[in-house]
């Protein structure tokens, strides 16, 4: 599964994208974030305030409860500011 990070989430995590194999017990986006935070200080920093984190599963907006089983791409980013 590919994980992508954008804007300040990318800068705080120190990584733009990575290929990972999630532990089988992880079923939703909240689980992915919890797992990432356990992997290093950089992720703990990037995901410190979940109120500011938005996500997309397979390029569609999701939330903490969105299932990730079978997903090929999950992206994490701040609230959008285009236009």
């Amino acid at each position: 599964m590919k994980l992508l990070y954008f804007a300040w989430v990318k800068e705080k995590a120190g990584i733009a994208e990575e290929d990972v194999t999630l532990p089988a017990a992880i079923s939703d986006v909240a689980g992915v974030i919890g797992w990432l935070k356990s992997r290093g200080e950089n992720y703990a920093l990037a995901f410190a305030d979940l109120a500011l984190i938005r996500c997309a599963v397979d390029q569609e907006h999701g939330d903490l409860a969105t299932p990730v089983a079978g997903a090929s791409e999950i992206a994490f980013f701040p609230p959008v500011t285009g236009g």
Partner: peptide, 8 residues
Amino acid sequence: LKTRAPFW
């Protein structure tokens, strides 16, 4: 677009 398109 302002609230959903992924631009930063």
